[in-house]
Nucleic acid binder design. Sequence first.
DNA 1: TAGATTGTTAATCGATTAACAATC
DNA 2: TAGATTGTTAATCGATTAACAATC
Lengths: 242, 242
Amino acid sequence: MTARKPADAAAGTQSGGREIPEATVARLPEYLRALTSLAEQGISVCSSEELAGAVNVNSAKLRKDLSYLGSYGTRGVGYDVDYLRYQIAREIGLTQDWPVAIVGIGNLGHALANYSGFGTRGFRVAALLDAAPERCEESVAGIPVRSFDDLDAVLAETPVAIGVIATPAEAAQGVADRLVAAGITSILNFAPTNLAVPAGVSVRKVDLSVELQILAYHEQRRAGAEELRGTAIAAAGEEQSA
Amino acid sequence: MTARKPADAAAGTQSGGREIPEATVARLPEYLRALTSLAEQGISVCSSEELAGAVNVNSAKLRKDLSYLGSYGTRGVGYDVDYLRYQIAREIGLTQDWPVAIVGIGNLGHALANYSGFGTRGFRVAALLDAAPERCEESVAGIPVRSFDDLDAVLAETPVAIGVIATPAEAAQGVADRLVAAGITSILNFAPTNLAVPAGVSVRKVDLSVELQILAYHEQRRAGAEELRGTAIAAAGEEQSA
DNA sequence: TAGATTGTTAATCGATTAACAATC
DNA sequence: TAGATTGTTAATCGATTAACAATC
C-alpha cells in the first residue's frame, strides 16, 4: 500500500474512507434486502454462497463486494446475518433517516407519497410540493401539499436530503435548478429528461419508457431469431459453403 | 471477419444480425429521445458531438454505439436526424406497437395506466389485471380492470408482449410464474423482489428504494468528506510523516 | 483542394470471476 | 487435525475513450 494522506488516515475504520466501486454500491441494497429476508426467516448465519444465491449473483462477486466494506465474515463459518446487515446499513447510511421531498403530485407523485416501502428502511416523506397545489388534494398520505414557490420556506421548516422529481418532462430541469439552488445535492428523477446539474450533485434517473424499450429490443430480437431459424433451415440446402 | 454461418448471412442488413452490447442497447432509447427533440426543434442534421452533448455522453462512445447499427452518418457532415431516428427506432423495434399488460392496479399500477408517455412511442396499455378487481375502479384510463385469474382468457382476447408487475413484493413471483406460463417473455418488475424466471425470459427491474439507497450512500459520503476536511486540517499539525 | 466529421482501431479502465492461500 | 469458507490475487472480459485514417 502507498503512503496515506491525512484524510485517508483519519477515515480509518469508520465510514468515509475506502472508495467503493459504483457497481458494488448498486448491489449493497440488494444484499441488505436479502439479509433482512433471511433474518425474518430466523436464519442467523449464512455463507457467501447462500447469500449470493438469494440475490442471484456469483459468490465471488459477493465476497469481493463485501471486502470493500471490511472483513465481516468468519472463515470456515460464514457471515452473521444481523451483524452484516448492520454493517451494510451503516455503510449506505441507513442508520439515519433520510427526509425526502416529492415534487409533482400527479398520478406518480401520489403513488410515491403513498408508497409504504418508503418508510420501511431509512426514508421518510418529509414534504410534498406541486406547482399548482390548489389542483391537488390538500394532503396526501397525511402530508400537506405545498406550493413549489414556497420551496425555501418549506425547506426552512423541514430539512430535506433527497428531492424526487415526478413532474412532467418540461418542468423537470427548472425544478432541478431550484432544488439545487436551495442546497439539495441528491435528486431522483422520474421525468424523461437528462438533467444538467453542477458537479457535486448526484442524480439518479428512473425511466419507464427506457426500460420498456430495452425489453422491446430483446423481445424483437427473439422474434427475429425464431424467424431466422426457419429461414436458415430453408436456406441450408441451397447454401453449401459456410 | 470470420466466415458467417447461414443464420448470420440471412440476418443481413435487416434487424436480427449483429450482437449489440447491453450498455449500448440501454443508451439507444436516450439517443432516440434526443433525436426526437432535435427534430421538434426543426434541426435536420447533427454531428456526433452535438447529439452526444444532448445526451451527456462522450462523442466517441456515441459513434461507437451507432456503428453497431450500421453506417448511417456522412463523413464531414454528420447524421440526418430523421433518418437516424428511424434506424434506431427500427433497431429497438419501435416501428411496431407493443401491447403491455399491467398487473396490480394499486397506486402505482393506477399511475402507470394513466402514464401518457406510455403511448407516446411504441407502447400501448392493452390490459389491466388485479387479483381483486372488485376492489379497484371498474376501469382505469378507459381500460377495464380484469381478474388476474382470467389471465389466459384475457391474453386470448388481447395479445400482450410485455407484462408489468406492480403488485406487492409477496405476490410478484407468483404473478411472474403465471405470466411466463402464459407465454410472456418480457417482464418489467416494480416490486422489490428478484424474480426467478427461466432462460429466454427478459426481466428488468425498477426499484425506488434501491435508487434512494444509492443516493443516500453518496449523500452520506459527501457529508463525511466535509467533516473529514475539518479533521484533516486539525490533524495536520500532529501528523508529520505521510 | 481544404475543412469537417465519421467509423474504427488500439489503449485504457473498470468489473467479473475462477482459483486458492489464509484461517476459522 | 480435517473440513469449510472467507478474503484476495490474478486472469479475463466488456465498456470507455483518445486518436486517426477514411472520406464526404
